[in-house]
Simulated assay, not measured.
Amino acid sequence: MLKTYLFLLIAVAFETFGSACLQASQQFTRLWPSLGVAAGFLGGLYFFTLVLKVLPLGITYALWSGIGMVLIAGAGWALFGQRLDAPALIGIALILAGIVIINLFSKSHFQ
């Protein structure tokens, strides 16, 4: 199970990289960031499929998208100076709480 969660984190890392490259590509007008988009999303989807061998789709997607949203919000702040207001930070905290609740209390992630 630890390997599955490692693959999930790798998938999220690829997806976060791809999303950051999407912003940096300036609507695919810059070559290297555009190639980073393809590499990031393809790598993310590959590792996502590996996770689906163990975890159900709904749980996998909830974790993948939730963790990804938190990371890309941080990347937007760190790389592109995109500021988050209090409601956005509260929303991110609620997403993190949902991830914790799924992992600590749900039996759905066991097939």
Rank of each mutant, 00 (worst) to 15 (best):
T4R: 09
T4E: 02
Y5K: 07
Y5V: 00
L6H: 11
L6G: 05
I10W: 13
A11C: 05
A11H: 03
E15Y: 10
F17N: 06
G18E: 02
G18C: 08
A20W: 07
C21D: 03
Q23S: 00
S25H: 14
Q26E: 15
Q26K: 07
Q27P: 02
Q27V: 11
F28E: 02
T29P: 12
R30M: 15
W32L: 12
P33E: 07
P33R: 10
L35C: 04
L35I: 04
L35H: 10
A39W: 07
L42Q: 12
G43F: 03
G43V: 12
G44T: 12
L45S: 09
L45P: 03
T49E: 08
L50E: 14
L52G: 04
L52M: 12
V54C: 06
V54M: 08
P56Y: 14
L57G: 02
I59R: 00
Y61N: 01
A62N: 04
W64H: 00
G66V: 14
G68A: 12
M69A: 04
M69L: 10
M69G: 00
V70C: 08
L71S: 14
L71F: 12
L71N: 03
I72D: 06
I72V: 07
A73M: 00
W77Y: 15
A78M: 14
F80Q: 01
G81Y: 06
D85Y: 15
A86G: 09
A88M: 01
A88C: 02
L89N: 01
L89F: 01
L89I: 08
L89Y: 03
I90A: 09
I92L: 15
A93N: 11
I95M: 10
A97F: 15
V100H: 08
I102H: 00
L104Q: 11
L104E: 13
K107H: 14
S108M: 08
S108N: 13
S108R: 13
H109I: 07
Q111D: 07
Q111E: 12
